[in-house]
């Protein structure tokens, strides 16, 4: 498989506070990869570093063969990385449709359009002229995903798309994943729900305290290994 994204020894800081300590992650072309890990493990920080929202100057982030570390976020977006941010972050004074359209500002060519987004999330059609923030949580999440897809990304980053949603809604949203993959987009999802992550991903990485503690194909990982990587060795008994 061709490598789409590869980070080597990635670090990240908030002021003096170090949040990532040498993270190596690869995503192959067409792959769906999940990042799991407890609160504060550094998953969002990792995604924000990839998108350029956090500075990464002088580091090594290979995307389609280019080192994008240090690029401005808008340039990275135009290069083909889109993100569904933690907490959805819809624009409150824009309608649903405007929220979707603004995702296409980079004018990249590809399979995604308003029609295609409405096709995978038909719930949004009736709401397209409502303010984005007047929707239910699940529908807002659909808008956030659609907004990212509108840029026709090569790599889609999703930060906790199931957080705070009812199981039925989560199921609806994850049903879109195969359709997104069909379009050739690779996906990197952050997911606290380990079961969900295992079900959707080709490979998973587990984060703990800013480091990758485990990686592999879901089928190859035991519950025991995951608990150890997720909670740390000393709590392993308790978690398993």
């Amino acid at each position: 498989m061709t490598t789409l994204l590869e980070t080597r020894n990635l670090t990240a800081f908030y002021g003096d506070f170090q949040a990532l300590f040498g993270v190596d992650i690869t995503v192959g072309q067409g792959e769906t990869v999940a990042l799991i890990g407890s609160n504060g493990a550094g998953k969002s920080t990792f995604l924000r570093t990839l998108t350029g929202l956090l500075p990464a100057k002088g580091q090594d982030i290979r995307f389609e063969g280019q080192n994008i570390a240090g690029w401005a976020a808008d340039r990275i977006h135009k290069a083909g990385i889109a993100m569904v941010p933690e907490g959805r972050r819809l624009f409150a004074s824009l309608t649903v449709e405007e929220n979707l359209l603004i995702g296409a500002s980079g004018k990249r060519a590809g399979p995604w359009s308003l029609e295609k987004v409405y096709e995978i999330f038909p719930d949004l059609i009736a709401k397209k002229n409502n303010p984005g923030t007047a929707l239910s949580g699940g529908q807002q999440q659909m808008v956030a995903i659609g907004r990212a897809l509108m840029s026709n990304p090569t790599l889609l980053l999703c930060d906790e798309i199931s957080l705070g949603l009812a199981p039925k809604v989560i199921k609806d949203i994850y049903e879109a994943v195969p359709l997104i993959r069909e379009g050739g987009t690779s996906i990197l999802v952050v997911e606290q729900d380990v079961g969900q992550a295992m079900a959707v991903a080709d490979r998973v990485y587990c984060f703990m305290e800013g480091r990758v503690t485990l990686s592999g194909k879901p089928a190859d990982l035991t519950k025991h290994q995951i608990a150890a990587a997720y909670f740390g060795a000393k709590n392993e008994g308790e978690a398993a």
């Binding site: 976020a73 808008d74 977006h77 135009k78 624009f91 409150a92 995702g103 500002s105």
Partner: peptide, 21 residues
């Protein structure tokens, strides 16, 4: 589209770069 971008920036400038702005 420009106005859309201006309103989005007014709402939440931090994530506008994620829209290519």
């Amino acid at each position: 589209p420009l106005g859309r971008m201006l309103r989005a920036t007014s709402d939440d400038p931090e994530i506008v770069p994620l829209m290519g702005g």
